[in-house]
Design a protein around this nucleic acid. Structure first.
Lengths: 385, 385
DNA sequence: AAATTTTGTCCTCGCTTCGAACATAAAAGG
DNA sequence: CCTTTTATGTTCGAAGCGAGGACAAAATTT
C-alpha cells in the first residue's frame, strides 16, 4: 500500500495511525484522547477501535476516572495480540526479548556464542522455545553494517560477507536485521532522549564509533543500508591506519581502542573493553595518566561532533556505550571541543549533547521498533483484519 | 493538512499527487497515462483533472495520436495557471526567472547589486515589473546559510545576521529563501542527474564547498535549516585556519580558494574566481604547476567524498561549479582518492561521482522547486479550488 | 470493412468520515 | 440530595470519495 488512494486505504491508514499512537505513547491512551490526538471524531474512533478490538489488536478496559465527565476506556495491547521479539547479538553473547504493543519489554534469555554465524541457530532455537501464535516479527541487532539488509560485516569477528539469507529464513518469523548502533539511535528517537526531535544524531561508542542520523523519528539508512559509519571519517587528524582500510579515522582517537592505545596496548579483543573500563575508573579516582587518556578521548569526541554538526545541523546528539561515561566525566570538555569545531555562527545555539536514556537496552529496543514497524503498517493490518 | 484523514483530504491529496506528477514529468503527460501512473481509474482521473481544469491549474489539449486506440489529451499548464518566480542572488549580481508548472523556465532579468541587502529591493522591484495575477510564489537562492529560514549569513559579503523579515515581507508574494548549494542539489534531485535516487549528495564547489544530503528527492535541512556546510568539516587534515572560525576545513583544500592559495595568492574576492578559472585553463593546456594545483584539489575532493560516503552511504554524488571542471579534467583521480578513503567493504560499490546537469541554473531551478512546493500541496489547493 | 486496441463516460455500489442530536456517567455546586 | 456542568459514548443520516462494470467512441491494424 504505502500510498493512500481509496476510501478503503483511508480506513487502514487511520487504523495504523491509531495503533502507532498507542504503541508510541508514554502511557496508556484513552479512546477519547486518541480521537483528539488524531483529529478524528469520537464516533470514528469508536468504529476504528472496535474493529481493532475484534481483530485482537487492542483491548479496551475501563479507565479510572480522573475528573469530570463520563469515564472512558483505556486502549491497551490485546492479551492475544501480536508481539515482537527482539535480539541483540553482541561480540560473544546474545539476548532475546519479547516486546508488546506499547513497548513493554521482557527479557527472555541470554546466551553466549562461539563468534561464528552459528549464533543464528542459537537464536532460532531460543525463538522457537518462547514463540507462540502471538509472535509476529523478530528484529535483530548486530554489531556491524548490514548491506542491503542481508550481507553482514563484522570485522572484529572476522565476518566479512556473511549472507544472512543462509542463516535466517525458513523456520523464522518475519525477520529484520540491522546495525546495533543505528538501532540504539532509533530507540532514542522513538522512546528516549530524542523524542519529538526532527533532526538528531546518535553515536554508540564502543571499540569504535557507529551512529545514525535521525530524521523525523526514523534512521537514515543510505542507498545500501550501510549509512552510519561516522567513526570512519578522518575528523581528528589521526595519522594511524584503521582496520577498516582507511587512514585517520575518527575512531582511532575515540572509543575503547583509543583509550587502550594511549597506554601502549594494541587495541583488539574483548580484554580491551575490560581495560577500557578500568582506565575510566582510574580516571575517576584521580589517576593523572588515565585522566589524560580520557581527556584526549573527550576532546576528540567533541571535535568530531562539532564537525558533524556543521554538516548535518542536529538539534541534539545522544551518546551510548562509552559515550555515557565520557559525558558523565567530561561533559564540559566535550562541549568546549565541540564548540571549537563549530562554525562561529553556530556557536550561539550548539547542539545539545546528551546521554541516551535507553542504556544497554538500546539495540534491543531499536530492534523491537523495526520489528513493530512491520506490524504497524496498513498492509499488515489489511491481512490481519 | 499534511495528513490524510477524511475523504475530502483524499481528493486533495490525489489532486496534489496528480499535479505533482504533471510538474515533475519529463514531457507532457496524458490523462490516461497519469491514471496509470497514479494507479487510479480513468473515471477518477477524469474527475480530478476536470476540477483542476476548472480551477485553471491544468489545461487539456488533444494529443497527437501515437498508436492504436482512442486519442487522449495532454495535460499542460493552464495558460492562466499559477507560475513561480525564482531568483538567484550571487556575489554581485542577481537573476530573476519565471517558471511554469512543468518546469519551463524563462529568464526575466539580470542585474548587478551593491553587495548589501539592498539587493532585495532590486529584487522586489524586478518582481513587481513582471508579476501578474499568475504569480503564486517566489523562491530565492542566496549564497549562504539561512538560519531558520530568515537569518542570512554570507561571510564574504560581510552579512552576519541579516534578518530577511526586514527586507522581504510586505509587497512580496509568498516567498521562500534558501541556500544556493542546497537548491542546486535539489534541482539535481528533482530534474537532474539525481532523479529517482533515494540517497544522494550534491556539492557546489565555488570559493568553498556547500552541499546537501538528498533523501527521497528532498533536501535534508537540519534543525535550524543550516545543514549542508560539509566544507567546514576537517576531512583532509589541513593545518590552516578557516574564515568560518574553525581550523582544518575541507574547503581549505578544495575549491577556488585552495586553487589560488597554491600559487601564493591570498584567497578572497571576486578576482580570485577569475584566477581560479585561469589556473584550470592552464592546467588543461599542460602547465605543470597549474596541473599540480588541480591534482591537489581533485585528490582532496575525492578524499572528502569518500569520508562522507562512509557516513552517509549515497548512491550517487553530483558536483556543480568548479566541481564540473574537476570531474572533466580529473575524474579518475577523484575516484581513486575517493576509493582510498572508502572503507574497504564499500569499495566494490562506490558512489557514482557525476557532474550535475543543471549547470549554472541549478540554484534558480532549485529555488523554483521550493516555490512550487508551496503550490503543489493539498492546503494550497484547497484554497484555490 | 471488420477486428483490435485504447480511452472516455455513465451509472451504481460500497466505503469512508462527519456532524448533529441524544444518552450516559462522572464530578461539582448549592 | 438534587441540579448543573462536563466529558464521553452512541446512533443516524448526509455528503463525498474512488472502484468497477458496461458501453460508447476513436484511432490503428488486418
Amino acid at each position: 500500500m504505502q500510498q493512500v488512494k481509496t476510501s478503503a486505504d483511508l480506513r487502514l491508514h487511520n487504523q495504523a495511525r491509531l495503533l502507532r499512537a498507542v504503541h508510541s505513547a508514554d502511557g496508556p491512551l484513552t479512546r477519547a484522547g486518541v480521537a483528539r490526538l488524531l483529529g478524528i471524531g469520537r464516533n470514528t474512533a469508536a468504529a476504528l477501535v472496535g474493529e481493532l478490538e475484534s481483530a485482537r489488536l487492542l483491548h479496551e478496559v475501563a479507565a479510572a476516572t480522573t475528573g469530570r465527565g463520563r469515564p472512558t476506556t483505556l486502549l491497551l495491547a490485546h492479551p492475544d495480540g501480536p508481539v515482537a521479539f527482539a535480539a541483540d547479538v553482541r561480540e560473544d553473547s546474545w539476548t532475546l526479548a519479547r516486546i508488546e504493543l506499547g513497548g513493554r519489554l521482557t527479557e527472555l534469555e541470554t546466551g553466549v556464542h562461539d563468534r561464528t554465524p552459528a549464533v543464528f541457530d542459537d537464536l532460532r532455537r531460543a525463538t522457537r522455545r518462547y514463540a507462540d501464535g502471538r509472535l509476529a516479527a523478530l528484529g535483530i541487532a548486530v554489531a556491524g553494517p548490514v548491506r542491503d539488509g542481508r550481507r553482514l560485516h563484522i570485522s572484529h569477528l572476522g565476518w566479512d560477507e556473511v549472507d544472512l539469507d543462509e542463516h535466517v529464513g525458513d523456520g523464522w518469523p518475519p525477520t529484520v536485521v540491522d546495525n546495533d548502533a543505528r538501532l540504539a539511535g532509533l530507540a532514542e528517537a522513538r522512546r528516549g532522549a530524542l523524542r519529538e526531535i526532527g533532526t538528531a544524531l546518535h553515536f554508540h561508542i564502543d571499540f569504535d564509533i557507529g551512529g545514525t542520523l535521525l530524521l523525523g523519528g526514523d534512521s537514515q539508512r543510505g542507498a545500501h543500508n550501510i549509512a552510519g559509519e561516522f567513526g570512519h571519517m578522518p575528523l581528528t587528524g589521526s595519522r594511524l591506519r584503521c582496520l577498516c582500510g582507511v587512514a585517520g579515522c575518527w575512531s582511532l582517537d575515540v572509543g575503547t581502542n583509543a583509550l587502550v592505545r594511549h597506554f601502549g596496548f594494541e587495541p583488539g579483543r574483548a580484554a580491551g573493553r575490560e581495560l577500557g573500563r578500568e582506565i575510566v575508573a582510574r580516571a575517576e579516582d584521580g589517576d593523572a595518566e588515565a585522566g589524560r587518556a580520557v581527556d584526549d578521548n573527550a576532546i576528540a569526541l567533541g571535535r568530531g561532533l562539532g564537525a558533524l554538526a556543521n554538516a548535518l545541523d542536529p538539534e541534539a546528539i545522544t551518546l551510548s556505550g562509552l559515550g555515557v561515561e565520557l559525558i558523565r566525566l567530561r561533559h564540559d570538555l566535550i562541549e568546549r571541543a565541540c564548540a571549537e569545531a563549530l562554525m562561529e555562527f553556530r556557536r550561539a545555539r550548539p547542539p545539545r549533547i546528551l546521554a541516551g536514556t535507553a542504556g544497554d537496552l538500546g539495540p534491543l529496543r531499536g530492534a523491537a521498533e523495526i520489528a513493530f514497524d512491520k506490524i504497524l503498517e496498513p498492509e499488515w493490518l489489511r491481512l490481519r483484519l
